[in-house]
Design a protein around this nucleic acid. Sequence first.
DNA 1: TATTGTTATACTCTATAACTATA
DNA 2: TATAGTTATAGAGTATAACAATA
Lengths: 167, 167
Amino acid sequence: MPDTPPALDVLQLGAYFSLVEVSSLLRYEVEKQLREAGDLSHVQFQVLARLGDSPTGSSRMTDLADSVVYSRSGLTYQVGALEDAGLVLRSSSPDDERSVVVTVTEAGRAVLEKVLPGHIEVVSSLLFEPLSPDDVNTLANLLVPVRDHMRSIPPRSAASRRRRNGP
Amino acid sequence: MPDTPPALDVLQLGAYFSLVEVSSLLRYEVEKQLREAGDLSHVQFQVLARLGDSPTGSSRMTDLADSVVYSRSGLTYQVGALEDAGLVLRSSSPDDERSVVVTVTEAGRAVLEKVLPGHIEVVSSLLFEPLSPDDVNTLANLLVPVRDHMRSIPPRSAASRRRRNGP
DNA sequence: TATTGTTATACTCTATAACTATA
DNA sequence: TATAGTTATAGAGTATAACAATA
């Protein structure tokens, strides 16, 4: 039986519950908007956005998986959907024949641009409306270290592979 | 064609991306822990926790739906699973024969207690480790108003019902 | 008529494990 | 042997619409 960890104090509970609730409500509205505006899932949007941000418009599957999704097959599924819709294309890497490089198409960039204003609108009106610029600054300064801390555990594609061999 | 909203500034983007990433990583680890420790989905855990917090140990379906889930049928599904597992029971309300009241059983409380230490452990080590008590206080003070703002739109069970009749 | 909740159904997404191919 | 990615499969969760019962 494991040690009982100290209970979360009242402040921690409040922060935790608010975080869960805020992110859940935000996620729900964002997904709805992305679906209605561009028939995109959130993962698909993240993939497109990440590719669109990249100078080359490309990324390896594994790198996408580590940043966006929790299993390789999940990414294969979502990228497959994007490819069926003509928004990305896949090609094998010249450097490493095992790797697959995903690239945004023009149609993909167009969808991204079609979807983006509504996305920003949702995020602004839901998340940022009650926050001053100072508040936003403070929030970012709190969450970035948390994200970095969470990211300091090994990437998920590696973890899920290794789990095969044992814990 | 809608007005183009002003783009999010750099700070807002940083805060938004961090929030999405933090909540996604946290949610993933929490779900894993809940599944392994008590074979609970996150929604099921939230239902149990909410009932456990209530003085009566009970709540109406609609009230649960508004606080925890995005469709009535989704809640029916999850509460059905909890009932099959013996963790809650359903009874019709004496006040309003249409209503169904959900109540935690002893077994439900036991599962909650079995699951809670690990849950706290995950949240503490992932979310709170890099934050000082002051940071936690600040974070809560930022997120609570955001949550209240988001909640000030009509509840979801009502919204999804009304959508039938038109926007 | 409106509200509460369930059900039937169809669909999306996810994860696991087995598989191929390259390093 | 290890890594990159796909596939087959099966399961969990969700939403919509139609439904019955009560207010």
